[in-house]
Design a binder for these strands. Structure first.
Lengths: 210, 210
DNA sequence: ATTGAAACCGACAGCGCTGACTGTTACTTT
DNA sequence: AAAGTAACAGTCAGCGCTGTCGGTTTCAAT
């Protein structure tokens, strides 16, 4: 009765249906994020999401009864992926034993140029004029920020005891990076952007060694 | 034939109709910007714009045949208003003879917290996924940046001859400010933001006196 | 094998937005 | 005074998006 085909594989443990269900749910949420990146939040229609996910609208609305449910799931999904990517980039940058600050700056810069950040930006802007979305996004964004802060602290233990400088370094980096990211939406940043990043890295060194 | 009622008043010189036409055109463009701030770019429908401007949709479509025409006008309108506000704030800050850098930082910070900047941000983000809007916005944004740069140079003549430091100071300020502005869409910036601004002002002093 | 449920599809009605059209009033020209 | 033009209003059809509903196939349980 309960002995013949489970308990050996973490994947099949759930049974075929549940497994497939989880797979299509993931496909839908990935598609939703892609569509937000590609068409903007308001342009990410259920039709487009279903099409890119490879199923019919009816099927999709079986997994997520309404568009708001998709958004809820997508925001959560995005949060996890973004945090994971950030962790990976940061820990990898901490392994190359050279200039950890410089590597961190590069990793962070890649982070804000990544499509996942674009999706988050799109959601943030849309949430400003969409109370329902704001209600979904706000707690998740706050959680992200906390975990992001925690991760940064773990990756850079050499700032131990210099809390104030570290906070300033983090905030400064974040604002410069995000400002750079949105500005690069309209204008093509070339040498001047690189110069600012070099200056930023310089100041981060100062803050660490001060 | 050409002697009886013009040539005396700059306002009536245009005649009643042309004058009223210009007034309603302005009202429409103001309303468009307001609606973008209030409902986002995609939410700024012709219905909402006409209503807030105080006329019927039909009347509005007499002045601007299509929505794209409204957008064209609004972008231009926004550009002028933003530049004017920036100039005013900057020159005013340069008059108070105390710490010009600090006053400039404050003025700039006010600038990115102003609704006009929100409108511009909304347009920038929307333009990422809307080629038609991008075609309208891009040249105007580039012009704004050039004139903005020029104004800054005029207002702060004491940086004369320190071009590289000045460019870094400007870019740094801009990215920090804009990053701060978009971050404040989601999270409530309190003391930490003030601390970063103080740090920024500090570094600007360094750049000037280095 | 049969019953039940879950994944999936296609069609439908409702709604908001856009742009085109006709009609009305006020001003301008000769 | 009459003809012409500009400002304005209201209605209409077309289109895309959302959410609901009935129908079909595939898996799971007895």
């Amino acid at each position: 009765m309960l002995d013949h085909d489970n308990r050996d594989d973490a994947a099949t443990e759930l049974g075929w249906q549940a497994q497939k269900s989880a797979a299509t749910r993931n496909a839908i949420l990935d598609s939703a994020i892609s569509c937000i990146v590609e068409h903007g939040y308001r342009g990410a229609t259920t039709t487009a999401i279903a099409q890119k996910a490879g199923l019919s609208r009816g099927a999709m609305l079986h997994h997520f009864p309404s568009k708001l449910d998709i958004v809820r799931g997508a925001v959560e999904h995005l949060h996890k992926k973004r945090l994971k990517a950030f962790r990976k980039a940061m820990t990898r940058s901490s392994e190359g034993g050279q200039d950890r600050v410089l590597l961190g700056v590069d990793a962070f810069f890649d982070h804000v140029r990544h499509p996942l950040f674009v999706a988050f930006l799109e959601l943030s802007v849309a949430a400003r004029t969409d109370p329902e979305l704001a209600g979904i996004l706000k707690p998740t964004a706050e959680a992200f920020e906390r975990e992001w802060y925690q991760t940064a602290k773990e990756v850079f233990p050499e700032w131990q005891g210099r809390d104030e400088q570290f906070d300033i370094a983090l905030d400064l980096s974040r604002y410069v990076m995000e400002g750079l990211a949105i500005s690069s939406l309209t204008h093509r940043g070339g040498d001047r952007d690189r110069r600012v990043l070099r200056y930023l890295a310089d100041k981060l060194h100062e803050l660490r060694d001060a």
